[in-house]
Computed example of a mutant assay.
Amino acid sequence: MRKGERLFQLLNILRSRRGVVTSQEIAEQLRVSQRTVYRDIQALSLSNVPIESEAGVGYRLRPGFNLPPLMFEEDELEALMLGVKMVQGWSDVQLGDAANRAFDKIKAILPDPLHTRHHQQNGWLIVPDFHRSHVSRFSDDLRAAIKGKRQIEITYQSLEDKQSRRELWPLGLVFWGRVWTLVAWCQLRQDYRVFRIDRIQQLSQQEVKFQTSKTLSLPHYIAMQESKDEGYADSTAQCKSSGSKD
């Protein structure tokens, strides 16, 4: 756990108690040593957090202390809400639920007037998710393979209904507004290839791991597309229409 996150959790422990809390209790909750707790208490005190201590008893926050809430302008809140709804409507269930939980945390600290206004008006902003299960198919497995740098094998059906099996190094996911695409290094072609997720019929992760480099990565692929004479827009249109450059 990073120090900043640990300090935030320590502060929450102190805020949640009406009385004192011992260093041992804090250490057990944070799964650190008491010595670390002492250092963290000192760091918070030096940051002007009013922590009171009673020798041999424990610590507590001075009564009346509250962290200032994060303040959002109304249009900032609407921008965040739009982002959440886009994730919910156009990505998989796992990411959609995570976006919703994150926004719940934001709403929990809003001042009452802004919270009430948002609750009364949030129905006007809608991102339909009619095709969510279709366009985000296999995205959970693909994200896991990309993060773990694991080779995958897919059965792919082109728009011409031709099926092929490919062993790929998955590099990244790109959303074009209607479809998600996978940018990958194709072992068969020994080159970059782009596949529409909704055209993948089967997918399996393999034990083989790969490494990216300056000349084999998603940024490198994007840079190559941008440098082509026909321009990046032509590449985008090709990805949408064919899903693969074969």
Score class of each variant (00 low, 15 high):
residue 121 Q to I: 14
residue 181 T to R: 08
residue 82 L to E: 00
residue 133 S to I: 13
residue 111 P to V: 09
residue 170 P to E: 03
residue 23 S to N: 10
residue 156 Y to L: 05
residue 230 E to M: 14
residue 191 D to T: 04
residue 101 R to I: 06
residue 18 R to M: 13
residue 150 R to S: 06
residue 182 L to T: 04
residue 161 D to R: 12
residue 183 V to Q: 07
residue 164 S to A: 07
residue 43 A to M: 08
residue 171 L to R: 01
residue 131 H to I: 13
residue 221 Y to G: 00
residue 41 I to F: 08
residue 47 S to Y: 10
residue 7 L to E: 05
residue 100 N to L: 14
residue 237 A to S: 14
residue 63 P to Y: 04
residue 53 S to K: 00
residue 85 K to F: 07
residue 79 A to T: 13
residue 208 V to K: 09
residue 151 Q to G: 06
residue 94 Q to Y: 07
residue 217 S to W: 00
residue 62 R to M: 06
residue 119 H to N: 15
residue 83 G to T: 01
residue 93 V to L: 13
residue 124 W to S: 15
residue 138 F to T: 04
residue 145 A to H: 05
residue 139 S to W: 06
residue 165 R to A: 11
residue 127 V to A: 03
residue 63 P to S: 05
residue 127 V to I: 09
residue 187 Q to K: 12
residue 69 P to W: 04
residue 4 G to A: 15
residue 188 L to V: 06
residue 236 T to M: 15
residue 104 D to T: 13
residue 102 A to C: 08
residue 10 L to D: 05
residue 48 N to S: 11
residue 17 R to K: 10
residue 5 E to N: 09
residue 231 G to E: 00
residue 189 R to I: 01
residue 220 H to T: 01
residue 135 V to F: 06
residue 212 T to F: 02
residue 225 Q to E: 07
residue 49 V to C: 07
residue 173 L to V: 06
residue 33 S to V: 12
residue 145 A to D: 02
residue 74 E to M: 10
residue 166 R to M: 03
residue 177 G to M: 05
residue 60 R to F: 04
residue 152 I to W: 01
residue 46 L to A: 12
residue 181 T to C: 08
residue 131 H to W: 12
residue 139 S to M: 00
residue 70 L to M: 13
residue 87 V to D: 03
residue 7 L to W: 06
residue 126 I to S: 11
residue 106 I to L: 03
residue 116 T to C: 10
residue 241 S to Q: 14
residue 68 P to V: 02
residue 118 H to G: 00
residue 175 F to T: 05
residue 131 H to R: 12
residue 3 K to L: 12
residue 6 R to V: 03
residue 117 R to Y: 09
residue 179 V to E: 08
residue 101 R to D: 02
